[in-house]
């Protein structure tokens, strides 16, 4: 079961890294969105998979009966989803504003902070 998921996680990482290596901000954003899912799936699978039994205690019991899914990775991932979403939104708006200002989404042309052919620093005192 986990092996099939290892395959899926590989595919997620490969695609998101491939997109992140692109020069275009918009593709990189898609890569970031996929990377979040890739990591979540990695954590989820590493905590072992259990089919269909949520980690919820029955109303008349004080501990879970039988085998349930591992609650810990779920708690980690739950907050991770929301946070990665907020930062995805942040990156999206950031690149949108950069696009408005610089009129490009090509990272090679976004060189305001590190302009090409910058003068060397003063060698004196």
């Amino acid at each position: 079961m986990e092996a099939a998921f290892a395959l899926l996680v590989s595919a997620y990482f490969a695609v998101s890294i491939y997109l992140l290596l692109s020069k275009h901000v918009i593709r990189m954003l898609l890569g970031v969105a996929l990377l979040g899912n890739a990591v979540n799936l990695l954590i989820f699978t590493a905590g072992r998979l259990v089919k269909e039994v949520p980690p919820i205690i029955a109303p008349d019991a004080s501990v879970p009966q039988g085998v349930t899914a591992n609650p810990l990775p779920q708690a980690l991932i739950l907050t991770a989803i929301v946070i990665s979403f907020s930062f995805f939104a942040f990156l999206l708006v950031l690149s949108y504003r950069a696009y408005q200002d610089l009129r490009t989404d090509d990272t090679d042309e976004m060189r305001l902070a590190e302009p090409a052919g910058e003068a060397p620093p003063p060698a004196g005192y």
Binding site: P54, I56, P59, L78, T79, I81, V82
Partner: peptide, 11 residues
């Protein structure tokens, strides 16, 4: 007690 909570509700 059941599936749900602040994050999901908020979303």
């Amino acid at each position: 007690n059941e599936p749900g909570g602040g994050f999901i509700g908020g979303l």
